[in-house]
């Protein structure tokens, strides 16, 4: 079972001065238990693509197929398709309207006709799965901290029990702790069998966590593949709005110097490869972590 986008094109406001081509012949697909990232600059069409994945937008050209059903304007079951694919907008806490977190989370399932004890269970399941304390359920969602609000927003989509979760810039506005926790949460949801589609401009994070990536530039999907393949592509051909992450850049430099390693290698692999080449004891004085490794030498850094 999968969400498949084929040769999709989309133009906003055609025939007006605000006309804007958002998508040109884009294809991508995602299966349950898979994590796909869509990366690209602001205005590259990422969000428009995401809105096609849950039938919020109807393809003008090309196809969007959700679990074998093609999305069409006249289709009777559009609302059912939207239930299968949960879409979390950017800054989702801006859509809060209810007086309690419970009511906010119950909104989606009750819209799809869930009620009574079953609704309570949906809410509880969602709360547990996003790691929110159940005692917060009766508090006003606006009084919660930023990280908690984001969890409530996420729970309010998960409560409808979607099979696919599409998130538009889910880490925007969160601090380091918030980002770390959110990524952990998404990994867990993926392990539980959900499909995760993450729209982001954080290339490093996308390379680290996704099974595959789609890179967008001005409405065109320029490359689609596993992190390693995408890193290879980006190194050869720069894409507007994206900057090659420092570790990938470093790996590429090592390769030029004759060390073979994947471009998406983690730090452990990189260090091991260098030590294999230079010998375990480094050529220079070892600096001890407690005495300050970096000292004052960090200025004018380009990372």
């Amino acid at each position: 079972m999968s969400v498949v986008i084929e040769h999709l094109s989309y133009t906003y406001n055609s025939g007006t001065p605000a006309m804007a081509v958002a998508l040109k012949d884009v294809s991508v697909s995602v299966e349950r238990g898979e994590w796909v990232s869509i990366v690209g600059h602001t205005g590259s069409g990422k969000s428009t693509l995401a809105q096609h994945m849950n039938a919020l937008l109807i393809p003008q050209f090309g196809r969007a197929v959700i679990d074998g059903v093609e999305v069409k304007a006249k289709l009777k079951g559009l609302r059912e398709l939207r239930r299968k694919v949960g879409l979390v907008f950017q800054y989702p806490e801006q859509q809060f309207f209810a007086e309690t977190a419970r009511e906010e989370i119950a909104f989606a399932p009750s819209n799809w006709g869930v009620s009574g004890g079953e609704l309570d269970k949906c809410v509880m399941d969602a709360v547990i799965s996003v790691g929110l304390k159940p005692e917060l359920l009766d508090s006003n969602p606006f009084s919660l901290s930023g990280g908690q609000q984001r969890r409530v927003a996420l729970a309010s989509v998960i409560a409808a029990k979607p099979d696919y979760l599409v998130l538009d810039e889910p880490t925007a506005g969160l601090d380091a702790t918030g980002i770390r926790e959110l990524i952990q949460l998404l990994s867990k949801l993926k392990k539980d069998g959900l499909a995760v589609v993450q729209v982001t401009h954080d290339l490093q994070s996308a390379l680290d966590h996704s099974d595959s990536l789609l890179v967008m530039e001005n409405g065109v999907g320029v490359t689609l593949g596993r992190p390693e393949e995408v890193a290879e592509y980006l190194l050869k051909k720069p894409v507007q709005g994206l900057v090659i992450p420092p570790l990938v850049q470093f790996c590429a430099g090592l390769r030029e110097r004759g060390i073979k390693l994947p471009l998406t290698s983690g730090m452990d692999v990189i260090l091991k490869k260098i030590e294999e080449r230079t010998g375990l004891s480094g050529a220079f004085e070892r600096r001890n972590g407690t005495g300050g490794v970096l000292g004052g030498e960090l200025n004018r850094c380009s990372f």
């Binding site: 990189i270 260090l271 000292g295 030498e297």
Partner: peptide, 29 residues
């Protein structure tokens, strides 16, 4: 509880293991 940027983490490790001389600028090149 901040995150260290990966580039800086690598720079630190290289210095700590004596693979890099002191005074090197912390950019990839």
């Amino acid at each position: 509880s901040f995150e260290e940027p990966p580039g800086i983490a690598l720079y630190r490790e290289l210095l700590a293991r004596g693979l890099l001389p002191g005074g090197t600028l912390p950019d990839a090149d």
